[in-house]
Computed example of a mutant assay.
Amino acid sequence: MTAPVRKVIHIDMDAFYASVEQRDDPSLRGRPVAVGGSRERGVVAAASYEARVFGVRSAMPSVTARRLCPDLVFVRPRFDAYRAISEEIRAVFAAHTPVIEPLSLDEAYLDVSENLQGLPSATAVARAIRAEILARTGLVASAGVSYNKFLAKVASDYRKPDALFVITPAMGPAFVEDLAIGRFHGIGPVTEGKMRRLGIRTGRDLKARSLEELAAVFGSSAAYYHGVARGIDERPVRAHRIRKSIGAENTFSDDSADFETLSERLAPILDKVATACRAKGLGGRTVTLKVKFSDFAQVTRARSLPAPVSDRDTLAQVSLALLRELYPLRRSVRLLGVSVSALDHGQAEAPRQLGLAL
């Protein structure tokens, strides 16, 4: 007996933080807006589409963003407002399915194999959800509809902003073959670079590599790459998905062993981690510093704390102390990373409901 086709929707709010600010302050509408950071320091937490035209992106240092777009307007983030709107959006989701896997305040997977409104297709559900979010919040969501999480995520991003795109089971394998590797969810810039050096530039190139070939280079990630190159992704949508850590890292254009230089380079990384912790309303008891040296050797140092932390000052204090413990350094540093784990979620994972035309 053939297994029923899973019906997955990926919802992603368009430039969420920036769109909220433009909605609430009419003077910002139509202008390039960056949420977070400042003109001199920090990082961009979100950028409006008007700013993205100039190359401004989230996680970009504010000074770089200002250089790319001199007219960029910086706005302080209002995470309480974003969380309140996110709860309204989740309420829209919950009216259609109980199987919701939030990824952040503005993004989630929904399994609508069985939908609560009795709509005839997953596409109809996605269309209804987008309309309800717009009516309720005045904000625009993009949606991807497909038979697995990988393709639903690809679909939601395919024609952003203000998009609804569907990848059916009949389309999936061929669609992936023509997809650039850089648009594969789960393949970041470092892995993309490695694949390009191997001559892998599209899904078709990736599909041509055997599982054994991929495993020799990419280890445990090979099975995922091998599957998605064929339009296969068996991961279920997990309701109330538990996040294990929040982190960020950066590879530098030049290596350094100087403590003051490395301390300055930690600043935007700490900004990003603290911003993510606030956005998700999470703190963690363990802070980990990752250091990769010029010879690509890597070490981590961690410190467990008596209570969950998320504020930037505490993260900086602990991270710098861990960095100081590594001195004197025998090699210069090419990458630094900071993560927070042992997160305080305050809730247990709920069981997944097992599961209609896309």
Rank of each mutant, 00 (worst) to 15 (best):
R285T: 13
V287Y: 08
T261D: 15
D258A: 11
A279T: 10
L326Q: 14
S341T: 13
E325F: 00
L262F: 06
V338N: 06
R230P: 01
A321L: 07
D311L: 06
S310V: 00
R278Y: 12
F293A: 10
A267F: 01
I232C: 07
S256P: 08
H240W: 12
G281D: 10
G281A: 08
Q298P: 05
A274C: 09
T251F: 02
R331Y: 09
F259I: 06
Q347R: 14
S339T: 12
C277Q: 07
L323D: 01
L266K: 04
R334C: 11
V338T: 11
I232W: 08
S319M: 00
S332Q: 13
L315D: 08
L266F: 01
G284S: 11
A348C: 02
R278P: 00
I246W: 05
F293H: 14
S263G: 10
P268Y: 02
D255C: 05
S253G: 13
S263L: 03
E264W: 03
A274F: 03
T300M: 01
R278F: 09
L305Y: 10
P308Y: 10
A302P: 00
E260W: 02
A297N: 13
S253I: 00
L270K: 04
T251M: 04
P308R: 08
I232T: 05
D233V: 10
R230H: 13
L336P: 08
T251D: 06
L262N: 02
S304H: 05
